[in-house]
Each structure stands twice: as structure tokens, then as C-alpha cells.
């Protein structure tokens, strides 16, 4: 019997080079546009607005001239584990209605909006704040023409459900369909990348299959500068960061010894 993934499992992941990131926010915009993220007439309530890709700012807490800043673009980390050895991320193991799952074949954590009942337990369980709740009905300002830019490949969300980064899963399906039409089963490295990776003007974001040693991401994560946010929690995220700066690598986790929180 022919299996779709007879070549071994895929494990899609992302590497973000923080030394290249300028904090411009293009990834956030590209992501929102690609994934039909609903907006608000007034977006100032940041605790309730939606941004699958969020750029966090941190600094080293020092005065000029030693002051340095770093930007952490934070998509969904697509964790592998819950932190206690359970082979599903925290959000997946707590979901009541199986609305979110870890796809073992792609490593992508799915979120099914029509299944979500909106209990928000996953939101409470996620340490990365990567999950967003639709506090309002979906809104796309008609007079501004925004509704004409909606993508038919991503279904818009209704009020009262959680949404989050899907690693642009529809792009994977698009690439697969193309491959099938060509009579191929495997897709090439450049055929599937996320919208943020494609849009980043500094090319700080690399996307690919972490299981495939030929893919650039699999090589980048071997770097001594590679790290993940909150690695100590043992959630095994698939989003890696690169930085040659010691303090940046250090503030990505909660160091038990001296550490001062940032401003901003």
C-alpha cells in the first residue's frame, strides 16, 4: 500500500535570525493579510486584538552607550511536547473538544475553528501567548475594500473561537496539490514557506523541514547560536532563534540567577 508519507515524517519548523531582524513588523502584516485575520475599527486594545505573529521587544537594560535592543518575532511555536514528557503540546492536551491537534506527519499544531467551543483553556495553558480569542464578530472594513483581499484558502473565524498561527498550512496544501498534479509525492524545500518568511525584508526567517538534513532550517538549528524561547519549560518548540549576542540568548529563558525584566 502506498503511503503518503512513506519517506518519513516531516517536521516543519522555523528559524528566526534575531541579528538580522530589524523589528519592522512586515511579518506581522504579511501574516495578517495572508490568513484573513480580522481587525477592529479601533485596534488600540492590544490585549484583545489578534496577531498570529507578534513581535516582542526586549533590551539589555543598560544605559547608553551599551543599550541594545532585540526583537522577538513570535509565531505559534508548534511545540512537540507539553513540558512533562507528554507527546502533545500543552494547548493540545488541554483542549476539551479536540479542536487543536499536533499532526504527527507535519509537526504542525492545527486549530479547527468550527470545532472550537471557546473555553479558552488552551490560551491559559500556552506560555507563549500565541493563542488569540475572537472577542468580536469577524470584521473587515467594507468601505476600505479590505474584504476584497480575503484569501479563499483560509476560512475566516467566527466570534467566540480561538485562532493562532498555522504555519500557513494552506500553503502546504497548495504545494502538495501542485505536486500531486505533477505526479510527485514529495514537495521541494522552496515550494512551501510561510507568508512571514516570504515577506521578511531582512530575510531573517527561514522555513523548512527540520527532519530533512538538506533543508536550510535543519542546518541552522545546529548552530551554537541557535536557541528557543523558554527552552527550560521543555515544550520542545519548533521555532528556533539565532543570535550571536549572549544576553539575547540569555533573556529568552528565565535565568534563575540575576535577571532584570525589560521595559516596553
Amino acid at each position: 500500500m502506498k503511503k503518503e508519507h512513506d519517506q518519513g515524517k516531516y517536521k516543519y519548523g522555523m528559524v528566526i535570525d534575531l541579528d538580522k531582524c530589524t523589528g519592522c513588523g512586515t511579518c506581522m502584516v504579511a501574516c495578517a493579510a495572508e490568513n484573513n485575520v480580522s481587525v477592529r475599527p479601533d485596534e488600540s486594545d492590544k490585549q484583545r486584538s489578534i496577531s498570529w505573529m507578534q513581535v516582542y521587544k526586549a533590551d539589555n537594560g543598560k544605559e547608553f552607550p551599551e543599550a541594545e535592543t532585540v526583537y522577538f518575532p513570535r509565531p505559534c511555536m508548534h511545540c512537540e511536547q507539553d513540558g512533562r514528557g507528554g507527546h502533545a503540546p500543552s494547548c493540545v492536551s488541554v483542549c476539551v473538544a479536540t479542536a487543536t491537534t499536533l499532526d504527527k506527519n507535519t509537526g504542525i499544531v492545527s486549530q479547527i475553528y468550527t470545532r472550537c467551543i471557546g473555553c479558552r483553556y488552551c490560551q491559559a495553558a500556552c506560555p507563549y501567548k500565541a493563542r488569540y480569542f475572537n472577542w468580536w464578530d469577524a470584521y473587515f472594513p467594507v468601505d476600505k475594500g479590505l474584504e476584497r483581499y480575503l484569501s479563499p484558502e483560509v476560512s475566516p473565524r467566527m466570534r467566540g473561537v480561538i485562532e493562532k498561527c498555522s504555519f500557513c498550512h494552506h500553503r502546504l496544501m497548495r504545494a502538495r496539490t501542485k505536486a500531486y498534479a505533477d505526479g510527485r509525492r514529495k514537495i521541494k524545500e522552496n515550494e512551501y514557506i510561510t507568508a512571514c518568511a516570504e515577506a521578511c525584508p531582512a530575510q531573517a526567517i527561514t522555513f523548512g523541514d527540520l527532519n530533512n538534513p538538506k533543508h536550510k532550517v535543519a542546518q541552522l538549528i545546529k548552530s551554537k547560536n541557535a536557541f528557543r524561547i523558554l527552552e527550560r519549560l521543555n515544550t520542545k518548540p519548533k521555532v528556533y532563534y539565532l543570535s550571536s549576542r549572549d544576553w539575547v540568548r540569555k533573556i529568552a529563558d528565565n535565568p534563575v540567577d540575576e535577571f532584570s525584566p525589560i521595559s516596553g
Binding site: E4, H5, A99, T100, T101, D103, T106, I108, T114
Partner: peptide, 12 residues
């Protein structure tokens, strides 16, 4: 093809 019963295969 049980693996195709994963949610994201048929949902978007």
C-alpha cells in the same frame, strides 16, 4: 490512510 484523518488535512 488514518494519517489523513488529522484535522488539518481536510480543514482550513
Amino acid at each position: 490512510h488514518e494519517e489523513n484523518n488529522a484535522c488539518f488535512v481536510c480543514h482550513k
